[in-house]
């Protein structure tokens, strides 16, 4: 047995999440490689790159992936379902069709066999989390290198000194 696979095996025994079925994508906590690929395209369509990076470069999927093991734990099944549905929907068109499909979802007009409510619910969920991952603090896994703050012209750390006056007695 090669050392690498042996280690991977022990890691799988150690961590429950690693052992079950298809494991998380490398560098991610819960979402699989396929799921990350779909989510990445989804987020990127919501905040696309132009001359400045978009949601994908900013690692918005990593923000979502991390929060799915923390505050958004209870949303994991909904995410898995939504990503699986999107993956099936995209099978024919590929990720190029993403933006047009998201427009349909926003209006609740996605195929009912994929999204019971026409996609509205999943659309709103991913949009809210994408904005958070893109504009929120990098400490939570997204907004890599403060990319959105630089885009908006906000210094990541403001320069602020303090008055040297004595504040006197308490």
């Amino acid at each position: 047995m090669k050392r690498r696979s042996f280690i991977a095996g022990t890691a799988a025994v150690g961590g429950a999440g690693c052992g079950r079925g298809e494991g998380p994508a490398p560098g991610y906590r819960v979402l699989t490689e396929n799921e990350i690929r779909t989510l990445d395209a989804w987020c990127e369509a919501l905040i696309p790159a132009d001359d400045a990076p978009g949601a994908s470069w900013a690692k918005v999927p990593r923000y979502i992936d991390i929060q799915l093991t923390r505050k958004f734990r209870r949303l994991l099944p909904r995410y898995r379902e939504a990503l699986a549905a999107m993956e099936r929907w995209l099978a024919a068109a590929g990720v190029e069709g993403m933006a047009a499909r998201l427009e349909l979802m926003e209006q609740g007009k996605a195929p009912r066999e994929l999204f019971a409510d026409g996609g509205k619910d999943a659309f709103e969920m991913v949009l809210a989390h994408t904005l958070q991952g893109f504009y929120g603090s990098p400490r939570h896994g997204g907004n890599r290198d403060y990319v959105s703050w630089v885009l908006l012209g906000v210094a990541p750390v403001p320069v602020r000194g303090r008055e040297q006056a004595e504040t006197g007695k308490n």
Binding site: R3, R4, F6, I7, T10, A11, C18, P26, G27
Partner: peptide, 25 residues
């Protein structure tokens, strides 16, 4: 022993821990 197994693989092995991925990257 677990730590030894984990770390003897070098950086690749460290990255096996999903939480460590970003640091290794």
């Amino acid at each position: 022993a677990g730590s030894l197994l984990y770390e003897s693989g070098g950086p690749e092995a460290c990255a096996n821990c999903h939480e460590m991925g970003r640091q290794v990257e």
